[in-house]
Amino acid sequence: MAAEGLSLAGIGKTFRGRGRTVEALREVSLTCPAGSFTALIGPSGCGKSTVMRIALGLEAPDTGTARIAGMAPAEAARSGLTGVAFQDAALLPWRSVMRNVEAPLEVLGRKRDAHTARVRALIDLVGLTGYENSLPGELSGGMRQRVAIARALVTEPQVLFMDEPFGALDQILRRQMNVELQRVWAETGSTALLVTHGIDEAVFLADRVLVMQANPGRIVEAIEVPFARPRAPSLWSDPAFHALCDRIAEALTGGAVDA
């Protein structure tokens, strides 16, 4: 079962700067079962984005192996199994919304015409109907982020990676986007890995929250999130929700003393 999802085993990564070496990751292992939603949370500089970049095949680990549906990351990427949304949308500024959403198809060498209907459906799904021909510069921050989500879904990925996809948005917009993301993810049934530094975002979206600490970057705790799906906005004012958030906050700071 895990073979269909994502698994990292014993990942280590060291960066060498000018005469300085930084051990970014040490012995990071995680398994995301197919169809699960996992959140990776940690302070700035703990290496959580590096974990995702290794899983995507953008960086090679020094030790350990990464597998997506049993394949090496680069191989999985080439066969179109993965979808990705970065912080700050990373849209191509000279392409319309429609053409931006289609970009992954182009990289994978798939025919764009065959997918026009789904691209339109995705744009509709993220609530941007009518903006198909707008340029990113003409959209608000939240709208650009929704384009990025639609783009991440266009290849019908089995594994969906998100690196602080709403990091640049304000709290209000962010919560709206969280609700929408949950809906979209539930409709596609993909395996999701969300990298974030927002505790409430992680708890609201994920089945399981992995807490990371820095120097060296490592996973210190895995916390299950028991709330039933679909989760409603009312969850944000639920005392149980806050109790869980507090627990994660504790895990984030607790180990820092002995690190």
Binding site: A74, G80, V84, A90, A103, P104, V107, R151, T155
Partner: peptide, 9 residues
């Protein structure tokens, strides 16, 4: 943007 393209192989 280059990361996006590389992430899709």
């Amino acid at each position: 943007a280059t990361d996006m393209v590389r992430a899709y192989g």
